[in-house]
């Protein structure tokens, strides 16, 4: 741990002023984007991810069609201006492909794909800004985008990253901390507490693993409340909007004849 930045100071504060177990500010935006069936922008601290979901729709790749369930297709794009130094990554960058594959395998057990045989669900992940916790932001945003697309899932998937500084575990690392500390990402399903993903790319002492794992599980529950609140408030607004516009259609009794008579009697 020979970094010039003090990861955790004596007062128990991290470089950005957070406590050990404190998460960064989360902002969830579920508003409609273009023609997507579901979309979500999550801003988690300085990490910002936009996920759009299209589908379930007709599978365009015949060879990959499954006759008993839907295929999940994840495409990820890291925008060149998302990091500190501007860098254009190739679409087929190994690291990006791996992240996309991770997201896909995280959601395969959760999405009820068997309800949509021969279909395809497209998930497009756009990374707009990154400052640590990229994978967990992507997973959380994908969960919410899938929910807003009305795709049946057994539960939310709430992911959070955790690391350890000497012996003290930290949650939700920034890039600065990720560069210096061993860290992992855990995705939990809050209702059952089941874990759909544990990603560990650095070496972590086995004694510390259990601590972080348990902490990340708890943090997942906290995130779940926040995500659920966002979903509920969006649903309330949409249902409310649908009810405000409700007026009984005009001409109750003579409406029956409409299919025969094209000239409708509709006065202003």
């Amino acid at each position: 741990m020979s970094s010039r930045v003090e990861i955790l100071n004596d007062g128990g504060y991290r470089s950005d002023g957070r406590r050990q177990y404190e998460l960064r500010d989360i902002d969830i935006d579920l508003s409609q984007q273009g023609t997507a069936d579901g979309c979500c922008t999550i801003t988690h601290g300085l990490t910002q991810v936009l996920v759009t979901v299209f589908g379930p729709k007709e599978a365009k790749m015949r060879s990959q069609t499954l006759h008993d369930r839907a295929v999940i297709n994840v495409e990820m794009n890291v925008l060149p201006f998302s990091t500190g130094e501007r860098r254009r990554r190739a679409r087929a960058d190994r690291r990006i492909l791996e992240l996309a594959a991770t997201i896909k395998s995280t959601f395969e057990p959760v999405v009820q794909t068997t309800l949509y045989p021969r279909s395809q669900i497209d998930i497009f992940v756009q990374v707009l800004q990154q400052d640590g916790g990229l994978l967990h932001a992507c997973i959380n945003a994908t969960t919410l985008a899938l929910i807003s697309a009305g795709i049946p899932m057994t539960d939310f998937v709430c992911a959070v990253s955790g690391g350890v500084h000497s012996t003290s575990p930290l949650l939700d690392l920034t890039t600065l901390e990720e560069n210096d500390l061993p860290h992992m990402t855990v995705a939990v399903m809050p209702r059952t507490g089941k874990v759909t993903l544990v990603a560990l790319e650095t070496r972590l002492h086995v004694d510390r693993f259990a601590d972080i794992f348990r902490l990340a599980g708890d943090a997942g529950q906290a995130l779940h409340k926040e995500m659920k609140r966002a979903v509920k408030s969006r649903a309330t607004r949409l249902v409310g909007a649908m009810e405000t516009g409700m007026k009984p259609p005009m001409g109750g009794a003579d409406a029956f004849e409409r299919d025969v008579v094209m000239e409708d009697k509709m006065s202003f």
Partner: peptide
């Protein structure tokens, strides 16, 4: 865009 169901009167 405002998620209002379409009716002829509206």
């Amino acid at each position: 865009a405002h998620f209002i169901p379409l009716t002829d009167t509206l």
